[in-house]
Amino acid sequence: MQRRNGLFWGIFLLTLGVLFLARRAGWLDVDWHSLVNLWPVLLILAGVNLILERRGNPIAFVTTVMLAVAIPATLFGFFNRHHDRDRDGFHMRWNHDDDDDDNGDNSYGDRNDNDDDNGDEEDNDDDYQHERERRNAESGRVQTNTFTETMDASTHEAVLKLSGGAGRFIISNPTSELIKADARQTVGMYSMSVDRDPATHIPTIELKPKDEHQHIDLKDGDFENRMDIHLNDKPIWTMDVALGAGQGDLDLSAYAVKSLKLGAGAADLDLKLGAKVDQADIKLDVGAASVTVHVPKEVGCRIKKDGALNVEQLDDFTNVGGGEYVSPGYDASSKKMLIRFDGGISRFKVVRY
């Protein structure tokens, strides 16, 4: 039985949400180190699931559900293991002097036999708590930024380089500017640079986080990272997009995209391509992801697929061997597209519209 996109990602997100809630409510007391060390089980489970689905075995429904629970739990455990190490080290520095307190009273006043000193310590604790609350409030504040670059009428080609961590990334309707991007984030900030080639005058736009190694505390459920991008539809575009975990809604149907390199980790990607160029080269390199690609019917499409642990839905394509598939009437098509897909534990679907 084919694994449905909604089933896997619905359970995936539900599990992740429950883990966030349990973490914030203090319900979790888990040995994250032992849990994360079991990650090879995911590969075994994914292999069993793939075999069962290829054979149409109904038990594949059970293994799909198990994967949808196990993958987010392992990812959550990995990040929280490092968070717990940092947190435990912090508490050790504050509680070190309590180790010799055998009477069960944790007050500093009993240790020093001085009520005034105890009052000073309590004031310091209050100051620390207020400072911590202030920093938490600041880190939870949503920051918004808008980036724009004016369109030059002489610009016939352009390059977009986009990178981001966990979050949601959207490319949609065209703009009269060369680019207009709106960013919303609670952690870190984005930056944009535009460099024009001295000889060809082709602009290269680079949009990325200022701190590419920004720490994200998964205990805080108020994290937001969203990027909405609008491009000019006049130039021919070359795109290099590198995303982490999250969601990508990339509607490129209105743009002339001759080359797209898209890399992602644990993500849900929906990519819509257009028919604005005679030859398009699309390279998809993903990890644990669900990828849906929409291709115009008037474009002849060839797919080269790699990766053993993939479930693909290529119903309108003919398997020509060697992991390659072609759309009907490919050779006679005046416009052609090559899609190269390399996936880890992933689901790959191509829809002709």
Score class of each variant (00 low, 15 high):
124 N>Y: 08
57 N>Q: 12
281 D>S: 10
61 F>D: 13
198 P>K: 00
303 I>H: 10
232 N>S: 01
293 V>C: 00
324 E>A: 09
260 L>S: 09
240 D>Q: 11
273 L>N: 00
221 G>I: 14
337 M>H: 14
108 Y>S: 08
7 L>I: 01
268 D>C: 02
206 E>Y: 08
171 I>R: 07
213 H>G: 10
200 T>L: 03
235 P>L: 13
240 D>M: 05
2 Q>F: 04
233 D>L: 05
310 N>D: 09
131 E>S: 11
200 T>Q: 02
91 H>F: 08
265 G>C: 12
239 M>G: 02
24 R>E: 13
92 M>Y: 13
195 D>S: 07
99 D>E: 06
264 A>G: 00
165 G>Q: 10
71 I>L: 10
150 T>N: 05
261 K>F: 06
205 I>G: 11
260 L>N: 10
196 R>T: 15
288 A>N: 03
290 S>K: 03
70 A>R: 04
12 F>I: 03
64 T>N: 04
278 D>E: 15
151 M>A: 03
197 D>Y: 10
38 L>W: 15
279 Q>R: 04
51 I>A: 08
12 F>E: 09
41 V>W: 12
267 A>T: 06
34 S>C: 01
81 R>C: 00
226 R>M: 08
312 E>Q: 04
212 E>A: 14
306 D>C: 03
95 N>Y: 00
57 N>I: 14
5 N>Q: 15
283 K>W: 09
346 S>E: 07
141 R>D: 13
132 R>I: 05
231 L>G: 07
242 A>V: 12
195 D>K: 04
345 I>P: 00
174 P>D: 04
280 A>F: 03
2 Q>N: 06
248 G>A: 15
264 A>F: 01
295 V>P: 01
258 K>A: 09
237 W>T: 12
98 D>V: 05
158 A>Y: 14
231 L>A: 08
78 F>R: 09
276 K>E: 05
192 M>H: 05
67 L>D: 08
160 L>E: 08
119 G>D: 13
289 A>E: 02
74 T>Y: 07
211 D>F: 12
304 K>N: 15
38 L>T: 07
285 D>G: 12
259 S>V: 02
177 E>S: 15
204 T>Q: 10
184 R>W: 13
266 A>C: 06
327 S>T: 02
17 G>C: 09
206 E>G: 03
221 G>M: 13
341 F>Q: 03
189 M>P: 10
